[in-house]
Amino acid sequence: MKMQHKDFPVTLFQPEKENEKEYTVIIYHGWGGSGQSFYEMAEGTANEGFNTIVPELIYHDTRSPLENPFDKKTMQKYFWETIFKSINEFEDFTKALNLKKKKLILVGSSMGGFIASGIYAANPEIAGLVCVNGSGSFLFTEKLFRKMDNRDFPSGAELDLFKKYDPIGKVKGNSPVLLIHGDGDTIVPIEGQKHFYEYLLQNDIRVNFNIHNNVNHKFTSEMVDEVIQWIKQIG
């Protein structure tokens, strides 16, 4: 069911009433993608009894979409801006949709994994986090991106901005986390996910890290099954 809230358009997948669980799943898509690519997965979580929300992200779908999102300069300008804005608007998003944070499980793929991780770190009452082929270690991963592109590392105001949003050093809750990544990922290096995993372990967060061998930057059907089974354990 499409909900056209004036500020936060989303697609809502509702379970059968007799099967309805108390938790709601929110699924964040990746850069240059759309929520529609996760409708099948959302139907899967709804079939398990979870109300599931697939939000439209800024600069995607109907929210001021970019003409050529995969242009290198466009990505460098808007990738992190999309992440930071999505984290910023989460408070208003939950109020607009009348959602209780303690009953939310966040799932993010690629850029959506960054978004979900940032929201999780800023909202300790969130019930759980799944990050697939993304990273919850922002500055560390940005340095990897810049090394790949032969760009200078961030400095000055850029560093301050990353430190403001970076989940590293900010996770205060103890809600469980599932990290999934392909070890052959050439888009979002697995090292960023590993760095986040080590940080969570050191801070006694309940975290599982599932690595898929010989998988590039892809959300496979096996990964989808892992996510749904993990969500069922939480909810």
Rank of each mutant, 00 (worst) to 15 (best):
T74H: 06
A127D: 07
D92I: 00
N98M: 10
A116F: 04
K170I: 10
N174I: 10
W80P: 01
S137E: 09
G112Y: 05
E158G: 12
S117N: 04
L139M: 14
I126S: 02
L106F: 08
V130Q: 02
K102T: 09
Y78H: 15
I83M: 12
T141S: 15
Y120I: 05
S175M: 07
V130T: 11
L144G: 13
G136N: 11
A116D: 01
V177F: 05
D152A: 15
S86H: 06
Q76M: 15
C131W: 00
G128D: 01
A157Y: 08
G108Q: 06
T82D: 13
I126P: 00
K101M: 06
M148H: 08
P154Y: 05
A121F: 03
D149K: 10
T82Q: 14
K101N: 14
V130P: 02
K100T: 13
K163D: 06
L161M: 09
N150I: 04
G134E: 07
L97C: 05
N88S: 10
K143V: 15
I168S: 05
F84M: 12
C131F: 00
M148D: 14
N98A: 14
F140K: 15
K103T: 04
G118M: 01
A157C: 04
P176C: 09
G156R: 09
F138K: 09
G128L: 07
E158Y: 08
K170Q: 07
A96K: 04
F138V: 14
L129I: 06
P167Y: 02
N123M: 01
A116M: 01
L104E: 04
N88C: 04
L104D: 00
F90E: 00
R146W: 13
G136E: 09
E81F: 09
S109E: 11
I168R: 05
K170M: 09
D92V: 04
R151S: 12
L104N: 02
G134C: 11
N123T: 00
M75S: 14
F84E: 08
F90W: 03
M111H: 04
E81M: 14
L161P: 00
I115K: 02
G173T: 09
D149I: 03
N174Y: 08
P176Y: 09
F140W: 13
Y78M: 12
G112I: 11
N174A: 11
S137G: 14
I105Y: 05
V171L: 10
P124N: 09
P154N: 08
I115V: 13
K77N: 15
S86M: 10
F140V: 14
Y165L: 05
L97N: 10
K95R: 13
P154E: 07
I126D: 02
I105E: 03
P124C: 03
S135K: 08
L139W: 07
G136Q: 03
A116L: 00
G112P: 06
K170N: 05
A96Y: 06
C131Q: 09
N133V: 11
D166K: 00
P124H: 07
T94V: 15
I87R: 01
L97P: 02
S135Y: 06
M75C: 12
G128R: 05
P124L: 02
A121H: 01
G169P: 01
I83P: 00
K164M: 06
T141I: 05
R146E: 08
